[in-house]
């Protein structure tokens, strides 16, 4: 490297902030297309299950309580999810979305990783009615 280039670079670097991020003091901005935690809105869902059929990580499970009255609960395992967005792509009724904001998902235990989405009473029903013995896939892990 030529000496002049070297000195110029040293001078410029003296006034520049470090290239590393100041995380966790400052939360870096993510792009609007960033794929964070999955969200499900049961309004409009027909229970076609195309989302969990193509999930490469088996991270989502559609629990159908009553197909006629459209009572669905989606169990989402954040720790299994690979955040590829295929389920969002598959949903024809735009019930699924991935949040660009929620990505600080680390936890010390396993419980916070299992999330149930749906109408409040439906989720209560799922958690109360199905014991791990007769419905193992609906039970919290």
């Amino acid at each position: 490297m030529k000496l002049a280039t070297l000195l110029k670079d040293v001078w410029q670097s003296l006034w520049r902030r470090p290239a590393t991020e100041a995380y966790p003091l400052v939360k870096p901005e993510t792009s609007a297309r960033f794929r964070g935690q999955l969200h499900y809105n049961s309004q409009g869902c027909t229970g076609c299950c195309l989302c969990n059929k193509d999930c490469p990580a088996n991270a989502i499970e559609m629990i159908t309580l009553d197909k006629k009255n459209k009572r669905f609960v989606l169990r989402y395992d954040m720790d299994q999810c690979i955040y590829c967005g295929q389920c969002v792509q598959n949903c024809r009724f735009s019930c699924l979305s991935m949040s660009p904001e929620e990505w600080e998902l680390a936890a010390a235990g396993k419980e916070p990783f299992t999330v149930y989405y749906g109408q409040e009473e439906d989720v209560k029903d799922v958690l109360a009615k199905f014991t791990p013995e007769d419905h193992p896939e609906a039970a919290p892990r």
Binding site: T30, S31, R33, F34, I82, Y83, G85, Q86, M98
Partner: peptide
């Protein structure tokens, strides 16, 4: 790559 695809490493651009 993150700005256009939403991820830094596995862009998952293709379907």
């Amino acid at each position: 790559l993150e700005a256009i695809s939403g991820n830094r490493v596995h862009y998952s651009a293709n379907i």
